[in-house]
């Protein structure tokens, strides 16, 4: 037996897409391979690193641990939808200015974690900002500049 395909309709960064996907396709593979949205990264495939963080139905999740079918009918936000055309999101501007992206691999997930936090809590304390990105591992920055960038973006937006 092969895993049967399922028709799903997902709104990705504001655009509705309908695709036939195998039931075992992860949301991460769906985004990267089927939709070509490779901004979302895979770091461990086990829900430990947060590199694949996207926002589904307003909640930050690890796309590697979800079946694409589970996102049927929902809104999915990825790093590609963060900027408004040419205009960067305040988080993107703050990350750039603070040096919060070094190698850049954790950055898409970090940005989405930052967005999920600010969507819920527009003016986080430093500690709340740290909690907001605690599920996203970064090995380059030591986190200080990322927390700083989230706080700066909060001031701006």
């Amino acid at each position: 037996m092969e895993t049967p395909r399922i028709r799903i309709t997902v709104t990705v960064n504001g655009e509705a897409v309908s695709e036939d996907v195998p039931g075992d396709r992860s949301l991460l593979d769906f985004l990267r391979d089927d939709l070509g949205l490779t901004g979302t990264k895979e770091g461990c495939g086990e829900g430990e690193c947060g590199a694949c963080s996207v926002i589904v139905g307003g909640r930050l999740v690890d796309a590697c641990l979800i079946f694409a079918a589970e996102a049927d009918g929902r809104n999915v936000e990825t790093v590609e939808g963060l900027a408004d055309g040419e205009v960067l999101h305040p988080l993107q501007r703050a990350f750039a200015a603070a040096g919060a992206a070094q190698c850049g691999y954790c950055t898409p997930g970090m940005l989405m974690a930052g967005k999920a936090l600010l969507d819920r809590n527009p003016s986080p304390t430093r500690e709340e900002a740290a909690h907001g990105i605690a599920g996203n591992l970064c090995r380059c920055t030591g986190y200080g500049t990322i927390i700083q960038a989230v706080m700066e973006a909060a001031k701006e937006s």
Binding site: L37, T38, G39, T40, T78, V79, E80, L82, A83, L88, Q92, F95, A96, A101, G104, T107, P108, L111
Partner: peptide
Amino acid sequence: EILEKVTGQ
């Protein structure tokens, strides 16, 4: 190269 990095490109 920061713009590519913060936009996922």
